[in-house]
């Protein structure tokens, strides 16, 4: 036993030192975790996404006509005119409608879009030639399906993001033909802001959420109005 110990210690020391030396000389690399950007850079192959044509076959669409669109191929906008209850306008209006006329049949429309100095019905609808569609600020006519061009006159930043894909909603697929919802597909043009409502789902409260609500009854009140 003692001989084993006497021999074992120097042996262990030699082993340890040689292991250290070997490690020191081998020029070890630091541990590296893959980054998403590296994965993207490493895969510049051609995507072979699943065939999704059948998913978008039934969506009524129109090619988006956009000048200066940032580096994209063609994309499509879902049509709107086939979804409007009152369109075409010429179904009711034969002639011109006075600019200060009472809304009457359009009683349910209140304009909460921009201050009245900036905007009224006539900003988008042509009272003189109440035809089928919208007008630009210049008075040039366009269709309901191209509402995005009308909105873009003011909301150019949103329109840029919409064309690029950071604003708005793509329909059905993430691949294949890109069909997006038009501005008026999500926003009511007369009241474009999203309204307050109760959430669709009630999460099971965790304990951490309960006392905070109890501690601040006033904030809770204000949420409920």
């Amino acid at each position: 036993m003692t001989t084993l110990l006497r021999l074992g210690r120097p042996l262990a020391v030699v082993c340890l030192w040689s292991a250290l030396l070997f490690h020191a000389c081998s020029g070890g690399k630091p541990p590296h975790h893959p980054k998403v950007s590296e994965t993207i850079a490493a895969h510049q192959g051609i995507p072979q996404p699943p065939d999704s044509r059948h998913l978008t076959a039934d969506v009524k669409r129109e090619v988006v006509a956009f000048v200066n669109q940032p580096g994209h191929g063609d994309f499509f906008v879902e049509t709107r005119s086939d979804k409007l209850a009152h369109a075409p306008c010429s179904g009711c209006h034969e002639g011109a409608v006075p600019n200060n006329a009472q809304p009457q049949a359009h009683w349910d429309i209140t304009l909460e879009h921009a201050p009245p100095q900036v905007m009224n019905c006539a900003t988008c609808h042509d009272p003189a030639h109440h035809g089928d569609g919208l007008i630009f600020l210049s008075g040039t006519k366009t269709t309901f399906d191209r509402s995005y061009q009308v909105c873009r006159q003011c909301h150019f930043e949103q329109a840029r993001d919409w064309a690029g894909g950071a604003h708005g909603k793509r329909l059905e697929t993430w691949t294949g033909e890109r069909i997006v919802r038009s501005c008026t597909g999500c926003h009511n043009p007369h009241q474009p802001k999203f309204h307050k409502r109760l959430p669709r789902h009630a999460a099971t409260p965790t304990a951490s959420d309960l006392p905070r609500e109890a501690n601040h009854p006033d904030t809770k009140e204000s949420h409920h109005d």
């Binding site: 307050k196 409502r197 109760l198 009630a202 999460a203 099971t204 959420d209 204000s222 949420h223 409920h224």
Partner: peptide, 10 residues
């Protein structure tokens, strides 16, 4: 707050 239930957006 991860479990709010009131009218949103607050």
């Amino acid at each position: 707050n991860g479990s709010y239930y009131h009218k949103v957006p607050a």
